[in-house]
Design a protein around this nucleic acid. Sequence first.
DNA 1: TAGTCTACGAGACAGAGCGTCTCACAAAGT
DNA 2: ACTTTGTGAGACGCTCTGTCTCGTAGACTA
Lengths: 203, 203
Amino acid sequence: MSHRGPAPDMATSVEAEDPRVTRTRHAVREAVRSLVQRAGFEGVSHQQVAAEAGVGRATVYRHWPTRTDLLLHALAEVEVPRHWQSSGDLATDLAKELQRLQRTLSSSPLVPELVALIGRAEWDAELRGTKAELLAAGTAGLRRALEAAIEREELPADHDLDTTIARLAGPLFYRRVLAHAPLEDAFVTKIITAYVNEVSASG
Amino acid sequence: MSHRGPAPDMATSVEAEDPRVTRTRHAVREAVRSLVQRAGFEGVSHQQVAAEAGVGRATVYRHWPTRTDLLLHALAEVEVPRHWQSSGDLATDLAKELQRLQRTLSSSPLVPELVALIGRAEWDAELRGTKAELLAAGTAGLRRALEAAIEREELPADHDLDTTIARLAGPLFYRRVLAHAPLEDAFVTKIITAYVNEVSASG
DNA sequence: TAGTCTACGAGACAGAGCGTCTCACAAAGT
DNA sequence: ACTTTGTGAGACGCTCTGTCTCGTAGACTA
């Protein structure tokens, strides 16, 4: 998922990274995240980042010439769930995944970052790619749950996953990002039961 | 819906506006919109706006001291549908309103502006209010349709409008803003029929 | 029509941020 | 011990910001 540089955290990396570079990269990443959360993308300047990270200004320019580079470096790493196990029941799987999404959207300090990313991605093609990656990672669980249901023939093979994901996750994003309303459990439950009923009715 | 100044376009205004001011306000509004569409919020500076509008820099500062003021001036005017008439059938009303929303999201040149607004509103309380107004205006038709259905007792009186609106409009926003996928008719149709089936089944 | 009022544009100004550059230093690798 | 290389400090020219003054032209008023 990382865009630049050699793979981190590997004991025997093919090409070891200079410890000084490692330190810089880490400090800058934390600084950018902190700044974005406090003041939005517009609060992120090379100058601010350098001060916040305790790093020379020239150093920041050397590694990340543009503002987009800085943002990508701070945001482009996401954990994709490695192992995923279906419970064998679509409703259960969906409930689990949507509740995970609900928790993330409700509490994660990165949400403001992501919203800012969405806004800026409208003009920045490079960020648009990152946005797509993050979205795919965030909804990967939902996708797996639906794919498992298709394999069990609980859903028809031609079921449109993207549409369904939009219908399940869309309302959550709407409430959190657009309406700024709290994401109650009842809301999530309603979405799931409505969808499951619809599936069982048609199938 | 307009925040500042007397009502425009009225032949016998209570307090007529100086034509020079009218000219300035109009030129600046167009300039801001053009700039936001081309370069995002970050492309909007007093300097740029002044140049684009063919207006003195001091004049821009006089009317709109902050960047937020500029953005509000350009975005804060929305037409709310004045007269709204129900067809007498919920499915028909919803189809009409969602298709209107679909058209707006698909084609309006203001969509990038709105996405940028969403992102910036995460930190700017003043813009957050405007965002709420725009959202309310954009979904007013949906709300009216649902209210009419409640009056006809097609929906229970305690039906949660906000939840329903999120479930209907959320997927559209998700597709357009997050997934950058086209909004096909089939997608919209599916959302409506699913919801209508759900209502008739429970009612 | 004459006179007053007021928004305007041009430009000066200090201050801050930006992006680039040089240079001495210290840490890393050999 | 020697070379390489990333670093931090600071100087630089440049642009943008926000405020100011001032002469002008257009808009109300009598």
